[in-house]
Simulated scan of single mutants.
Amino acid sequence: MKKILTTDELITHMKEKGITFNKVSEEAAREFLSHHNYYLKLSAYRFNYSKYGSGHEREGEYQGLDFGYLKELSTIDMHLRYQIMEMCLDIEHAIKVRLIDTVSQNPNEDGYNIVKLYLKKEDPQFKILRNVHNHKSGEYCKDLIDKYYPFFPIWVLVELISFGDLIHLCAFYDKKYNTEILLKNKFLNTIRDLRNAVAHSNCLMNKMTEQMEDSKQPDSILTTYIKNISSISKSRRTKYMNRTFSYNIVTLLYVYDHYVPLTAKKKRYEKLSEFMHNRVVRHKDYFFNNGKICGLYDFLVDVIDNLSSKE
């Protein structure tokens, strides 16, 4: 069992691992770790750097890694999480609008019937209803729950269930009425996972260069989506669509492109492009010697700029 280390001990530990304090002094690092971030989270970004190999005099130490680089990656990651959360919320809202609009135009539905059928078939143990009831103690859902529980119309239920349950409900409706609310259902699990990760402030950029598991392959729909971007060669497409981080970001962009209305997504792509061309590269000199990070950045910039330039 590892013992908890003081801030001074953590700095000593990092120095032993080859991490330098040139861009950020030890004193500034101590203050940052004490008040702005904690070691476990900050150190996660070290996985984007290689270690000296066997036989080298610095075997096991990180190559070219400064504390300032870890700090900068953690800050960029924080801003990226805010961007992704907003995008996931936009997607969730768009799906809710599409579902309710579809139900409202169905002459065989009153909005209550589909909920009754769904809960009867998919929630025999009352897990969904119990989760909804647990929200009754909160100020924002209390009135809705008091008024409708347990006989919810669909336009109320969607405000009370999780994103995962919303996807499940839409899939149930699509199957029953042969509709296509979920145009690309197979990608929405990735959106759900991203949403959950950013909601819990999990690191996204800690393993940016990690390859996909051998058992997984990039979906042909997404590779074709990238294939249509002329500035991205086949070799770059193959390389970065086989990395988990960039593949998940492309999945998010693809789903966003298909669900969110034109005006809203145009503004989002412009905001993302501004983020990539300004905040992300504020300390670009930190990463000049890390070809893996620079290559990934160039790939994502090409994808995002392509979207933001669309009419």
Rank of each mutant, 00 (worst) to 15 (best):
H56W: 09
Y69V: 05
R130W: 13
S137G: 09
R98H: 08
L40D: 13
V115K: 00
K71T: 10
L117N: 14
D90R: 03
G68R: 00
E92V: 06
S50E: 14
L65E: 02
H133P: 00
I128W: 06
L40R: 14
Y45I: 01
H56L: 08
Q63S: 07
S104F: 09
Q83G: 03
N108D: 15
K121H: 10
I128P: 04
R81L: 15
I128V: 12
F47G: 03
R58E: 14
L42C: 04
Y38D: 02
E61Y: 03
I114G: 00
L70M: 15
G138N: 14
I114Y: 02
D66R: 05
S54F: 15
N113E: 07
L117T: 11
N134L: 15
S50K: 14
I100E: 08
K121Y: 04
I114A: 00
P124Y: 11
I114M: 09
S74E: 02
R46D: 03
M87L: 14
F47H: 13
R98M: 04
E72W: 00
T75G: 00
L42P: 00
A44I: 08
C141T: 15
Q125H: 09
I128E: 05
E86Q: 12
A44M: 11
E139P: 00
P107F: 06
V115M: 07
N108E: 15
H93V: 04
Q125R: 11
V132N: 01
R98W: 02
V115D: 03
E92G: 09
E72I: 02
G60W: 12
Y140F: 13
P124E: 09
F47S: 11
E109H: 03
N106M: 06
I95E: 04
S50H: 10
N131R: 11
L129H: 13
Y38C: 00
S137I: 10
Y62T: 00
Y38M: 03
G111S: 06
I114C: 05
F47Q: 09
L73S: 10
E122G: 06
C141Y: 08
K127T: 12
N131E: 14
L80S: 09
R130Y: 14
A44L: 09
S50L: 11
S50F: 07
K71R: 14
K127H: 10
Q125A: 11
I100C: 12
D123R: 07
S43M: 14
H133L: 13
G138K: 15
E139W: 05
A44T: 07
L117P: 05
G138L: 15
S54D: 12
K71Y: 03
S43N: 14
N108C: 12
D110T: 07
L80K: 03
L129Y: 13
S54Q: 13
G60K: 08
V103Q: 00
Q63R: 11
L73D: 01
E59V: 01
E109S: 06
N134I: 04
R130L: 12
Y140V: 10
Y49C: 02
V103L: 04
A94K: 03
I84G: 00
Y140R: 02
L89W: 03
Q125G: 05
K41W: 01
A94R: 01
D123A: 13
G111Q: 07
G60R: 06
N106I: 02
